[in-house]
Amino acid sequence: MAEKTRKQEFFKGLWGENPITRQLLGLCSVLAVSNAVINGLAMGLAVTFVLIFSSLIVSLIRKIVPNQVRIASFIVIIATFVTIADRTLAAYFPHLSKAMGPYVPLIVVNCIILGRAEAFASKNKVSRSVIDALGMSGGYFLTILLMGLIRELLGNRTILGYPILGKWFSPWVVMLLPPGAFIMLGLIIAISNVIDFKIKERQKRV
């Protein structure tokens, strides 16, 4: 594979290799906490924090760690940052932390983070790994935010708690429940596929 420029390295996470719509990684948290925009925001920030710092550390120590124990050490590094994120949330935003339940600690087994550590950060230079982490977490962030916006708007008529749609719109309660999450994500993936097909067709014509 040809060496990518830094810009490409960043943008591939947002679209071409978006962790959620393309790689289908880390779906649990996206589905579970996207029932309100604020939860999605917090989750997105937590994942961004953990992904960037664990990529940084993994990439820094990539030459010291013996190959056989690399996965175990990646997991410990990730778990450390997840603990930091979890405790910080619990200390400063107890309500939010309660609303997200076990999903913040569950970032530790989120495949995106271990996946990037194993597939990218353990093989690449520090700066490149951080850019990759930024792009990947950006892709995660945007998708969970989009899910949160649609689900809160349709399910509760609000965005971030502010009423947007008037009384004429009867809320689709199912959007706040698990089935709504599954169906919405399925549709988002389908729509992103449609856009992708269009882009590829255009490139073929050029």
Binding site: L24, P179, F182, G186, L187, N193
Partner: peptide, 10 residues
């Protein structure tokens, strides 16, 4: 993935 997720939803 799309149809799988929608099936799961149903």
């Amino acid at each position: 993935a799309g149809i799988a997720l929608i099936t799961a939803g149903i």
